[in-house]
Design a protein around this nucleic acid. Sequence first.
DNA 1: CGTTTGCTTGACCTACCTCAACTAGCGTGG
DNA 2: CCACGCTAGTTGAGGTAGGTCAAGCAAACG
Lengths: 225, 225
Amino acid sequence: MLNAICLPLGMSRQDVVKMDELLKERFRLPKGGTLYRQGDAAEAVFGLRSGSIKTQIEDANGQVQITGFLLPGEVLGLDGLMNERQVSHAIALEDSEVCIIRLDEMDQLAPQLPSLQRQLRRLMSKEISRSHQLLLALGSLRSEQRLAAFLLNLSQRLQILGYSPYEFILRMSREEIGNFLGLTLETVSRLFSRFAREGLIRVQQREVHILDMSGLQTLSGTDCS
Amino acid sequence: MLNAICLPLGMSRQDVVKMDELLKERFRLPKGGTLYRQGDAAEAVFGLRSGSIKTQIEDANGQVQITGFLLPGEVLGLDGLMNERQVSHAIALEDSEVCIIRLDEMDQLAPQLPSLQRQLRRLMSKEISRSHQLLLALGSLRSEQRLAAFLLNLSQRLQILGYSPYEFILRMSREEIGNFLGLTLETVSRLFSRFAREGLIRVQQREVHILDMSGLQTLSGTDCS
DNA sequence: CGTTTGCTTGACCTACCTCAACTAGCGTGG
DNA sequence: CCACGCTAGTTGAGGTAGGTCAAGCAAACG
């Protein structure tokens, strides 16, 4: 049941049993703790079981870009499989728990578990298209649209996890949101205030209430799909 | 020899022979032709053998974002493996030739060819970190840095293919470059003129000569790595 | 050889950034 | 428990990078 959180999709009963082998290894990560750093050896991917984690890359000048905020059930470390080196940092936004999926173990199980390979492929593909979506946002949406889309995305993912899509706690700071969306913290703050003033949301510190979901969708340009 | 272009890295001799099976299917694509469209069934990935291709996504409002310019030896369609549906368009920038790698065929070969799976994994991982890099560019670089980085990246990839890194023909319009980098065509044009004025490059229409590689590197912020 | 398409350049504008001051929580130690 | 300091967030004023609009030009194309 809980295993489903790690690599959830389309597996037979006995496959899941075999999977158990892979997922036996767990790891607790305190708030602010680093799961891995850019340059580390990458011999595993990680399934987030609880908590939340940000991933970020850093260029030669120390310029940082957050590439994702991960929620339980999501998988990280997929970008490190190219050269078995991590190319990003993964930092816990709150106390978190991950399971470790070692690649060599996975490859040993592969012949008996073709669905596992396909599953990993699907996850990687999803991450590719997710970051392409993000490119669209950074490349061509205006600030208000970016933040609206960000909130809606978060809301949706929390709903999938069984939480209310209408009220939630942001695990990240304004600065982190801004960095992620290619904006400054001031702009993010102003937008929160403005959205609240316009009755779209209610916000108090990191607690967000979505009052007008379809209003946000209209704003983000996501609704007419 | 030419097969190496399709899935090049780290394979034994006999593995390559088996690979041949997979790659027998070729396809010619005229300039402007569409290899696949968003929504198409995705049962294969494609290796670009010659020419160049752009990939782009389109949102509900028709907003387009180019996510990549592909050169020979590079693989596309990796973002469609999530739901066996293409999530992007692939359009030829010039007459091109692709080889087709069907996923079901690949999965059949998988038991005999574990390296193939690993190779695909590496390619997908590379695409993930490439788009994360791109996020960094769109999120936090200034226009001049983006264009400089773009030119350097192109130059590098062409050099790997055996072409001169100092002079090449852009296969894409100013508008396409602008869209890719999150800028307008006017800004791109102005930057080309400015780079030329400053002696960094010589540019005449789509023909680019890089005169001061390290100058470009300094500008892009890539040099001090 | 005219038409179309892509590129350049200029003038102006605005969305977002920068800088700065102020405020609210929140943890810590006296 | 309060006072203090610290960090995160808010808000304002003003500046600027890059967008928009518009005109002109050069290649490419039928």
